[in-house]
Write a protein that binds this DNA or RNA. Structure first.
Lengths: 244, 244
DNA sequence: GAGTGGTCTAGACCACATC
DNA sequence: ATGTGGTCTAGACCACTCG
């Protein structure tokens, strides 16, 4: 009778999806599964691990394995300017709107542009760039890493090169420099995190990350900022609004 | 000496990230790891499985475990109308532009709107909707599932209720009905797939999915279509362009 | 202290690939 | 026919949490 671990996982998954086991509930433990299914302890362990890697459950050593909860943050890409006329409110996933990530651990320094960054910013390889690296957290839980790159020749000596760029953020400062960003291109991808990323974001196993690379352009199509973001996919729902 | 499986996985991961092992290369097999690390076979198995669930490797039973390749398709959300002035070409991830997904397995039928769909389409719960379900594939590999819902009162009896909606697709037909979609809202989320989804998309373990729910609105802000998509995250890079 | 998940071993059988 | 990954067992030790 092989395939046992998967079948146990299937059983438990069905009980989760049917609503019998609700988010936050404790799943049957390993000893319980050993008894009810007549399998070895390690098989029971693997069955639970399947649910964990699927993102359906979270293991708390010493306590139990629990059905995962999903309470995402809503990130509206067109936030700054869209008057959000059509379709505000018609959302498919419930999300806490009021929980807003706060920036922590801001680090600012100057470095040489990598090939990739240089290409995106229309710079020579090795040109100096100001790097702004920061972590965002909600209720002490990290949810996003972000690193911005700006041409050093443009922003050196301004508030943009300081940890706190002042009211309105770096975009307000860029506008004051005559380089207001008005167009944005976002490239987006989902994947599993590396070990480093998993520990930095304190991710449970089975949680993917959303990798976003946003380039900001001025009115005359000059790239002035590249922002590389890494989001905990279990904490975010992204929203985009597009018009013809 | 516990933590062995993770350490072996760390070693192999480092060799992948350093470029010593390239995409498509074969990783050391279980017997090899048993010898070089002096561990039990199952520990070697788990080490390889860690890399698989991280999406870094693909196991081919009977053959070996290989470094995964990433050759995404580019999906430009603003495709239809953006003149793509600023920043075409400045992309961060290499992507095959010419590989375009083709629709297969188109199914069209009428059903009653669920709570969710009814709310998004501004309909009464249980109102009739036309459902268009289809699968997209590239070179015989499935990459996307999509299901569209449209008010049956609007589209019943038109080409939209046929498997092949004709040139220009259903949006051209909607325009002919005086309900041309001009505004779109996309909600997006990444997560691990269910078993059903994994088999439908033929996903390797360790591959997340991108879940997109797009609502299309007419000029007078009336929702006329809800399209729920499920993308193989290992096959896609999404691009969005935003303007002030 | 009792219970939990996490991990490892040593050995076994299977289905499948490749040759 | 050989080698591969996939899985299971039975028993063991650990670190942790909880009452």
């Amino acid at each position: 009778m092989p395939e046992t671990a998967r079948q146990i996982a299937d059983d438990l998954r069905a009980r989760i999806e049917s609503g019998e086991l609700m988010p936050g509930d404790r799943l049957p433990g390993e000893p319980s599964l050993v008894k009810t299914y007549g399998v070895a302890k390690m098989t029971a362990n693997q069955a639970l691990k399947i649910l964990v890697t699927e993102g359906l459950a979270v293991a708390k050593p010493g306590s139990g394995t629990y059905v995962r909860e999903f309470r995402p943050i809503r990130r509206v890409a067109n936030d700054r300017l869209s008057k959000s006329r059509w379709s505000s409110g018609h959302s498919i996933w419930a999300a806490d709107v009021d929980r807003r990530p706060m920036a922590t651990d801001v680090q600012v320094y100057e470095a040489e542009a990598s090939h990739q960054i240089a290409r995106l910013l229309d710079l020579e390889h090795g040109s100096p760039v100001v790097v702004r690296s920061r972590k965002y957290a909600v209720e002490d839980r990290p949810v996003q890493l972000a690193t911005s790159y700006l041409p050093a020749d443009l922003v050196r000596g301004t508030a943009i090169a300081e940890p706190n760029p002042g009211p309105g953020g770096i975009y307000a400062r860029l506008a004051e420099l005559g380089a207001e960003p008005v167009n944005f291109a976002e490239e987006l991808r989902a994947r599993m995190p590396s070990e480093d990323e998993r520990s930095a974001l304190n991710l449970a196993a089975g949680t993917p990350v959303l990798e976003i690379c946003r380039t900001a352009f001025t009115e005359d199509e000059r790239p002035v900022e590249v922002n590389q973001m890494l989001l905990d996919a279990g904490s975010y729902v992204l929203e985009y609004r597009l018009s013809s």
